[in-house]
């Protein structure tokens, strides 16, 4: 080894800006903020529900009704779909390959299966909530 090996300077904070793939990787990782945000939001809703007060619940629901929140949720939904749900399904055949007999099930089957299951689950949740 040479005495002064060349170390390519790489920024610790902006390294992913050099390459499109890295940028998409970081955008995907950032969906964890949304997961954390909506988890704690739901826990807050449960806390208000657990208080047992109809007035508190109704004022909580009323407080949600503003254009700012609507825009936030719409953007969050699109961001989540394109950087979490769809990439996760695309990755599924690599993470969970399915073998039938001697052959591997084609990737497309697994991906399509995920989309079909996702549509059923989404419709079920919306139906359960009374939104359909």
């Amino acid at each position: 080894m040479s005495r002064r090996p060349y170390v390519r300077p790489i920024s610790k904070t902006t390294w992913f800006m050099r390459n499109g793939r890295y940028k998409i990787y970081v955008l995907r990782e950032l969906t964890s903020f949304l997961v954390a945000f909506y988890s704690f939001y739901t826990i807050c809703a449960l806390a208000i529900l657990a208080s047992g007060s109809v007035e508190k619940w109704d004022s909580f629901i009323t407080a949600q009704q503003c254009t700012g929140w609507a825009i936030f949720h719409a953007v969050a939904l699109l961001y989540f779909l394109f950087f979490q749900t769809f990439p996760w399904f695309k990755l599924a055949p690599k993470a969970m390959p399915v073998q039938v007999g001697d052959k591997k099930l084609p990737d497309s089957y697994i991906i399509v299966g995920h989309y079909v299951a996702w549509i059923f689950i989404s419709v079920f949740i919306l139906w359960l909530a009374g939104a359909l």
């Binding site: 909506y38 739901t42 949720h73 969050a76 939904l77 779909l81 299951a117 996702w118 949740i125």
Partner: peptide, 12 residues
């Protein structure tokens, strides 16, 4: 991946 889109739709 499966559940949050529907959850966000409920918030929306």
């Amino acid at each position: 991946s499966f559940v949050y889109p529907a959850l966000i739709v409920l918030f929306l």
